[in-house]
Design a protein around this nucleic acid. Structure first.
Lengths: 388, 388
DNA sequence: AGAATAGTGTCTATGAGACAGTATATG
DNA sequence: CATATACTGTCTCATAGACACTATTCT
């Protein structure tokens, strides 16, 4: 839980400066190439444009001879953006001041990222703030970078993310712990099992999203307990881009039927199994980590709250309740002492004076859950005694 | 912690979706206004454009009658971006397909931010990937957001958010609990006290961001304990737009000096006081809620872990440690029993055989913290005895 | 000496765990 | 009847809390 920091240093060797050039390659290709040669001569890495001839000069979006023929414009543009975003700064070649629509679009993305941008001429007719000292020739810019007196960027780059909510819905079926998983119908991880979840929609909080997904997956989402667990934000956790997920834990009684498919994905109860987090490839994304954390949380919740009763049907016996503790804690408990402890806690279970029979042995009394939420003192989880 | 669903319908509780319209207002003002009226009629908040006449129709960058006369174009544009970025999604009104340069630039910034974007027509001649189901009429878009069934495929809007990390840094000074707060130098909440925090930057996880901020605010960020607490995502929690914050808890020993200002904001230790969360206006944003939750968490951590020692200087007495528990739990503890309990736990405190004197009374032995992280059995917090 | 703080020894009440024993069903 | 499960009563042992008592400093 509480993390102690590691002592890594992040001082790395300095690389050659890299630059990306943008501007209307169609209209000003000669100027662009000339500027690129100035940077290259100074030892800079010129990430884009490639120094090869143009193709399809009559279209708005120009291509180079090295570009693949069949790709869509936006695929080529994606590759260009990779080059631009991995550069140290951007130089806008606009000899007449004007920028085309594609360059305007690129500039929007570049500025939103907070990158350092320099201009050959003050851009005309675009509502952009031009910081002082950012309009200069390629030669001056080289001198400036080598002298390390860069004035841009104006803003620290911020990362935008798509927030999602994933839910670990636990239940007990056939005396074993089960979790609700869906089979993914789309890439990435198509065909893999994953936790149910989804993107936050307009006007929703993460809790709203989680409750909506719960409602979609189980038909009694509105009545289930739910708790926020943890937020997972590793930059590479989702191959689709920056997706930050907040995990929720929900606890369900034994539901025999799960509502039908949503989003062409089937939801199923799957027995919880240690390989789900031991083997990271068992579940999609980092859902193994999420599940492990959910289980740890459930164990603690059982100690301090009355949630165990939420795993049980409306009427349950003390044995049913004990089984919940045994399955989630992975222990066996003394039935006599468990009985005494549970019945002593005020408001945990309420006798109904009905009995359940049909099984072997003395019929057990049925209880329903009481109003108590917290266990004080907590249920003690058997632990290793201190050896004397 | 565990939330039982309340019986309220969330049709009322949910915030109204908000939309920003972009496009060439100069050429297609009538269409823009018509679309805006569709959204407004459905109860959506239309953040931009304002429904007032235009001015300076002959220039590339158009202005509205409500815009201030003397401002520079880019200042007006900044205000527009604030409105766009605080919307849930964007609708591009481009009846003929083409986008102007200003709209292209705006679109670049909007897409780089990961916002959900819809188009009236497929944009022509811009290298943008148009996801399936994002070209549709304003009426269809309204229906899609409201979750109604559509004949045409429509992609449900996903909300993009800026993730931030806020840190509650607790310490004990002069035998009182203190929290590190900054005075905000910018709007919103200029001049108000707030928790230190900041935006996630490229390549960072939330934990990286929190650790960096901690480092910036205290000069020993690298060595402090830190734990993720909770993620706050209410749509209206930040007036600047969709900002989802993850709160962290850090625990510091008594630092006499805090590193100087960063971002023109001074950081100061402030004594923790119940009014900070009782009165929501005391702290900026929802930082009162965050602080309350941090304090609850700190109380639990003291029970089950050895973090209390992290509040103390490198060498400390048992009394120092006891004071930590007393201050954070808000109780008085029996000194004798506390002493026995702490010294019995293996690896909590290690005697140094040095003594501290200079005060009244018998000099106390100095200890340093041991390797143990967890307390098992936990420190018991005095609680109300069951009345018989 | 007296006050103040540190630290030790010891008694007691509580409650968890072990387990014997009783109750009541099925086959 | 045996067997299985449900439930009760009682003993034991660990330990949290109370508190008397000793130790060592300052005023």
């Amino acid at each position: 839980m509480m993390s102690r920091p590691t002592g890594d240093d992040r001082s790395t060797a300095k690389a050659r400066p890299s630059v990306a050039l943008i501007g209307s390659f169609r209209q000003h290709f000669a100027e662009v190439r000339r500027a690129a040669e100035v940077f290259a001569a100074a030892g800079f890495t010129v990430r884009t444009p490639p120094l090869v001839p143009l193709r399809d000069v009559d279209r708005e979006f120009v291509r180079f001879e090295t570009d693949p023929h069949l790709s869509l414009d936006h695929h080529i543009q994606d590759i260009t953006f990779d080059k631009i975003f991995s550069s140290d700064f951007v130089y806008v070649v606009n000899p007449d001041g004007y920028l085309g629509r594609t360059t305007s679009y690129e500039l929007g993305r570049i500025l939103e990222r907070g990158m350092a941008v320099y201009y050959a001429e003050p851009p005309k007719d675009l509502p952009i703030e031009i910081a002082e000292g950012t309009v200069l020739s390629a030669d001056d810019l080289v001198a400036c970078v080598l002298g390390e007196v860069l004035t841009a960027p104006a803003r620290r780059p911020r990362v935008a993310a798509l927030p999602t909510a994933d839910i670990v819905i636990l239940t007990i079926r056939d005396r074993e712990l089960h979790v609700l998983l869906i089979k993914r119908g789309k890439d990435p991880f198509r065909g893999k099992s994953a936790l149910p979840g989804g993107f936050v929609r307009p006007g929703e909080s993460l809790e709203d999203t989680a409750r909506r997904e719960l409602e979609e997956e189980t038909n009694l989402g509105g009545s289930l307990l739910m708790e926020q667990l943890h937020t997972f934000s590793e930059p590479e956790r989702d191959p689709r881009g920056r997706i930050v997920t907040t995990a929720f834990l929900a606890i369900a009684p034994d539901l025999s039927d799960v509502r039908g498919a949503s989003d062409a994905a089937r939801a199923d109860w799957v027995e919880v199994d240690e390989s789900m987090w031991r083997d990271p490839a068992r579940l999609a994304f980092d859902h193994g980590d999420i599940l492990r954390r959910a289980l740890e949380r459930a164990r603690v919740l059982l100690e301090h709250t009355t949630v165990a009763a939420d795993f049980c049907p409306r009427r349950f016996t003390i044995s049913d309740l004990r089984k919940v503790y045994e399955v989630i804690w992975g222990v066996t408990l003394n039935p006599q002492n468990f009985q005494r402890k549970v019945r002593e806690v005020k408001g945990f279970v309420i006798p109904t004076h009905e009995r359940r029979d049909g099984r072997q042995g003395r019929p057990a009394e049925l209880f329903r859950r009481g109003p108590a939420e917290h266990l004080d003192p907590p249920m003690l989880r058997p632990r290793q005694r201190n050896s004397p």
